[in-house]
Amino acid sequence: MAKGKVAFVAHCLLNQNAKVAEFARLPGVVSPIIGKLREKDFIIEQLPCPEILAMGLTRWWTTRDIYDNPGYRRHCRNLAKFTADLIEDYYRRGFEIILVGLDGSPSSGVRYTGSSDPIWGGRPQATVDQYKIVPGKGIWIEELEKELQSRGIPFPRATGIPMDSQDFDMDKAVKEFEEFLGESSGVQG
C-alpha cells in the first residue's frame, strides 16, 4: 500500500508562460489536467523546464535533433540530478509516483517528441508544418530516466499530454489522461 501519490508534471502544465512562442494554449495553469490530479489526491511536483532555463523566453522553435548535443544533454543532466533527488525522496518514502510530460516536445516528450523535415538549423525559416511528431522521448526526459537508472530507481509510470501537436484536442487528451490515471499503480518505493 503506497504512503501517498505524487505526480511530477512538466513545468508548463502549471505555467504556460514558459512555452516557446505560439505554443501556449492556455493563459497559465492547464487546469483540465491539473484538476484531474487534484481530484485524485495526487501531490503535485513541478519538473524544471530545461528550455527556459537554458535559452529563455524568446528562444527559437527547436527540435529534438537540434537539442541532441552534448552541451544541452549536460544541462539536462544537471537538472536531472536535483530533480532525481526529489523523486528519490518520494520513492524511499513509499509513494506511488507518476510522471506527466508534454508529448511532442523536443525536451519533455514522453511518448512522442518533435523532429523536422528538413532538419532545422542556421537561418531561422521554420514553418510549423515542418515540425513532425515522432515516437520517442524528449532529451530532458531521456536524461532524467538515465539519472534515475543510475540510482537504481525505476522510471515512473509516465504519459505525456500532446499539447505540442497541431491537432491537439483537449477533450480527447483529458479522456486519455483519465484512462491513464485509472490504470494500475505507478512506481512505488
Binding site: L14, P27, V29, I43, I44, D85, L86
Partner: peptide
C-alpha cells in the same frame, strides 16, 4: 488558476536543505 496566472512551485518542506 481562474485568473490565468502561471505558477512556479517551490520545493516541499521535507526536502533536505542541502538539496
Amino acid at each position: 488558476e481562474e485568473r490565468g496566472f502561471g505558477i512556479i512551485k517551490m520545493p516541499p518542506i521535507h526536502l533536505d536543505q542541502k538539496k
